[in-house]
């Protein structure tokens, strides 16, 4: 039966990973700080991502689950949050709405444009995908049949994406003077979108270590208790 258990474990892992790896183009992996179990959200990177999101993305997309007040959970002070909201003529409790209404979007693109709050969880690859997509705009290769309404993107499934390249060098004036390259902006906004998609990520990862450690110790204690209790049975059997 030990064979059975180990075989089942292995087969389960193999079959599920085969299942998860359904993507077509291999996405380049970025070194995201949130991948460390100890990581906290980086306030400055969120701030830069926020600048890209509000100044670029939000002209067409919304973040309907996000309010300015949420930024206070990643280290912004109440005064900072209030100031940012006022700059956008919003209250701290207003959700991030797209500048483009759904009606206008339908008129222009024949569909409402997707909300970006949980986008990083809605695409295989998450932040890596967002980053790859934003930096993946290229000239279509020779002979590629690109329709007028689309742009060529290396990482978009099918390579024809309706969204024109959203980022251009120097598009955003970063609060900390960081050079706003396309790669920098893509990285910052993908990071910001990871936060909007799963704000609990860092808490979850930090807590998990303690929970698993606890269960591990408990399992060891239980193992020895079990051994102790069963010892008389085993002894009797060998007598």
């Amino acid at each position: 039966m030990k064979k059975l258990l180990s075989l089942l474990t292995v087969l389960t892992l193999v079959s599920t990973s085969a299942l998860a790896a359904g993507g077509s183009v291999e996405l380049p992996k970025q070194p995201w700080s949130f991948q460390s179990v100890k990581a906290d959200w980086e306030k400055d990177k969120i701030y830069r991502g926020y600048q890209v999101a509000t100044q670029v993305c939000m002209s067409c997309h919304g973040f309907k689950y996000i309010k300015h007040r949420d930024l206070m959970k990643v280290g912004f002070t109440e005064a900072e949050v209030k100031k940012l909201a006022e700059e956008m003529e919003m209250s701290v409790m207003d959700t991030f709405k797209s500048a483009l209404s759904d009606e206008d979007a339908i008129a222009a693109y024949a569909k409402a444009l997707p909300d970006l709050s949980v986008m990083n969880k809605a695409r295989p690859g998450g932040a890596d995908y967002t980053y790859a997509l934003l930096t993946g705009y290229k000239e279509a290769p020779e002979g590629f049949n690109l329709p007028d309404t689309g742009s060529y993107n290396e990482y978009f499934p099918g390579h024809v994406i309706a969204m024109p390249a959203p980022l251009a060098e120097g598009q955003v004036d970063y609060f900390d003077g960081t050079n706003a390259t396309v790669k920098q902006m893509a990285s910052d906004v993908a990071y910001f979108m990871q936060w909007t998609a799963e704000p609990e990520l860092t808490t979850r990862q930090q807590l998990g270590v303690y929970v698993l450690l606890y269960v591990f110790i408990l399992a060891i204690l239980l193992y020895f208790t079990k051994k102790r209790i069963w010892s008389d049975i085993k002894r009797k059997d060998t007598e």
């Binding site: 807590l207 998990g208 698993l212 269960v215 591990f216 399992a219 208790t225």
Partner: peptide, 18 residues
């Protein structure tokens, strides 16, 4: 069974948290 439960909890909670 309790020991088994604790062992089960390890991969289970690993998935829950990570």
């Amino acid at each position: 069974d309790t020991f088994g439960l604790a062992v089960y909890m390890l991969p289970f909670l690993f998935m829950v948290f990570y």
